[in-house]
């Protein structure tokens, strides 16, 4: 028995959500009375995974793992699990994680639950909580198979850094070559990816036009936040599609979500409603978003956003 965690890295550093997954895996292993094995591929990060709860760290050095392919990555994790009697898998639900988890579940003949937001209940039935109905509900799901693949939503679990350092074992697993070819990759540089952001500043049709987005970007930059937008804003191409949050866009769960000039339609809330602190700025006191907010300002975004920016700069001394 062992809990296997996939430690994903990008740009030579482990993803924050992978470190969350390792702490999650460690807490789960403690409940199950077993230990954790973290598996990394391709590049490694500078962090020591033991700090976050890995008891063993295996790094796979096969050439075939230098770029992402769901099949080779899932194969590698599956092979290592077989060699080390792993039976519970913890994967962070990044884009890559989403592709790996189902393949792994079939390979391992395991029960699969995605969208998990909390630690598993292990006394009696093995049960996890997952989002359902586009974040409008939470389902308690019982996993009845012996093996289990758990996919955890980023920013759902708090990282603990009180583990002891471990050494990294390098291994070649001999994974088959990829069954898809990457032709090209395009990444936004210098921007905080929305899916990983802890702070998000977002705006909607109330901002009136693309030319006014500097107010949103300036505030986001000062805060160290990512920017997001409502669906009509990306439909009208005021903002790139990658910023569209909601039921048909990205689902995010940041610690702070500031929404200016967004009405708060149910489809928008479906993507942002589980943010920890929600602040709403809207000229209309009846805007539905206020009902889902922690803090609200009835006012004109064109006046309020610059005032917020000024204050952030004062507070941060920038």
């Amino acid at each position: 028995m062992a809990v296997i965690i996939y430690a994903e890295s990008d740009n030579n550093t482990y993803k924050k959500s992978s470190l969350e997954a390792i702490t999650y895996g460690k807490d789960l292993a403690n409940k199950l009375g077993t230990s954790t094995i973290a598996i990394s591929m391709g590049t490694v990060g500078p962090q020591n995974l033991g700090t976050y709860g890995a008891d063993v760290h295996i790094h796979c050095t096969d050439n075939s793992l230098s770029s992402f392919n769901p099949q080779t990555f899932a194969n590698t994790i599956s092979t290592l699990a077989n060699n080390n009697s792993g039976d519970v898998f913890v994967i962070s639900q990044t884009y890559n994680g989403k592709s790996i988890a189902p393949l792994l579940a079939v390979k391992q003949d395991a029960a699969l639950v995605t969208g998990i937001v909390d630690i598993a209940e292990t006394e009696g039935a093995f049960t996890v909580k997952k989002t359902a109905f586009s974040s409008k509900a939470i389902a308690h799901v019982e996993l009845t198979a012996n093996k289990k693949v758990l996919s955890i939503i980023p920013n759902s679990y708090k990282i603990e850094e009180n583990g002891t350092e471990v050494s990294t074992t390098e291994q070649q697993v001999g994974s088959a070559s990829a069954n898809t070819t990457i032709v090209s990759t395009h990444k936004e540089t210098g921007k905080i990816p929305l899916t990983e952001a802890e702070l998000v500043v977002s705006a909607g049709r109330g901002l009136k036009g693309a030319e006014n987005w500097h107010m949103v970007e300036d505030l986001a930059n000062a805060l160290g936040a990512a920017t997001a937008c409502s669906k009509p804003v990306s439909d009208m191409e005021w903002r790139p599609h990658s910023e569209h949050v909601g039921q048909t866009g990205i689902t995010i769960k940041p610690n702070l979500y500031i929404a200016a000039g967004i009405s708060g339609a149910i489809q928008h809330l479906a993507g942002v409603g589980s943010s920890k602190v929600i602040c709403v700025i809207n000229t209309d006191p009846e805007a539905p978003f206020f009902k889902a907010a922690d803090y609200g300002i009835v006012g004109d975004a064109f006046e309020v956003l610059p005032r917020l920016l000024k204050r952030v700069k004062e507070v941060k001394g920038i």
């Binding site: 990008d10 993803k15 992402f68 990044t94 884009y95 890559n96 898809t180 070819t181 990457i182 032709v183 090209s184 990759t185 395009h186 990444k187 936004e188 921007k191 990816p193 899916t195 990983e196 990658s242």
Partner: peptide, 8 residues
Amino acid sequence: IDGGREVV
């Protein structure tokens, strides 16, 4: 993909 797009 996280923070971008790729062609496969």
